[in-house]
Design a protein around this nucleic acid. Sequence first.
DNA 1: TTAGATGCAAAGATTTTGCAAGATC
DNA 2: GATCTTGCAAAATCTTTGCATCTAA
Lengths: 165, 165
Amino acid sequence: MSPSAPCPGGRSWAAHAGETLSRAGHRSGAARAVVVQMLDASACCLSAQEVVDRSRAAQHPIGVASAYRVLEQLHSLHLVRRIDLGDGLARYEALSPDGERHHHVVCVECGRVVPFEDHRLESALSAASAPPGFSLIEHDVVLRGRCAHCSRDLLLPPAQAVSPA
Amino acid sequence: MSPSAPCPGGRSWAAHAGETLSRAGHRSGAARAVVVQMLDASACCLSAQEVVDRSRAAQHPIGVASAYRVLEQLHSLHLVRRIDLGDGLARYEALSPDGERHHHVVCVECGRVVPFEDHRLESALSAASAPPGFSLIEHDVVLRGRCAHCSRDLLLPPAQAVSPA
DNA sequence: TTAGATGCAAAGATTTTGCAAGATC
DNA sequence: GATCTTGCAAAATCTTTGCATCTAA
């Protein structure tokens, strides 16, 4: 979790990403800087469109194509994780080099996304019995349920319930 | 797993689905019958396009829109599970009423999808500590790795390696 | 100066929707 | 016969690609 938390070496994820990118032979550019900064500052995963919208709001607008290209670049270098919450959007989140991961819970009513960690679940996933010969690399876990807010609304008369997003 | 395995009552999943659909007030139709039969006969999840392609191959072609509509209908009645393997396609698989579930492993090289079960993982998922107030409903788990075939290819000289799909 | 980065617009791919024709009950 | 289902085509989304321009090194 910890947005913009320093990486093991004391540097920010953004610094780590920049270094990895240049070592890979990529040049720096305005769009890339914006995307990296957005991801570094975000507490959770962002879609390409969200990155573009936030860049506009921050007075540093970038093109949609650039957002997708930078995100793909970061993904190919394992600097971000690609997350699919099942709504047809690809989301990305910064991946700290220490391998720390978290999972996501999505509210089936309002779509709210909440990150969470669970060490026991993590162990079970690492120890998961994959089919013979399969060597596991990573795992994606998405839980679905109702957030506190929407669970409460279910108990209220329909007229008072807040309409879901 | 077990494709076309009888449900607890001894009926096939297709029969169960048909009954549930009519109880919900839906009428039967050619397209729906084909989709239900495809899912019942499939060992694993199918995309809408796969259903359409197989329907054509089986000499009972259905329209793309119908496939999507029937799949959505089945999903809303919890007769199928919607699965997102991260490649931008929605897949669906029959959901037996006894609640038996399995997960999927995807080969990062060739895209092969293999179902698997793991009771310990299942327990960890059921016991997962969701954020406060969140009531969990279901979970999606996708593991990624290299299948036996592709792991072997990595050891061969590039010239002999089979090109990935 | 050279090769990569960027942005716009067009193209691709997947899924949804409008509407007329055909089936079911 | 009323209503739901189906299928074609158009629309809506999300993502990728082509190409000219700009820019980092």
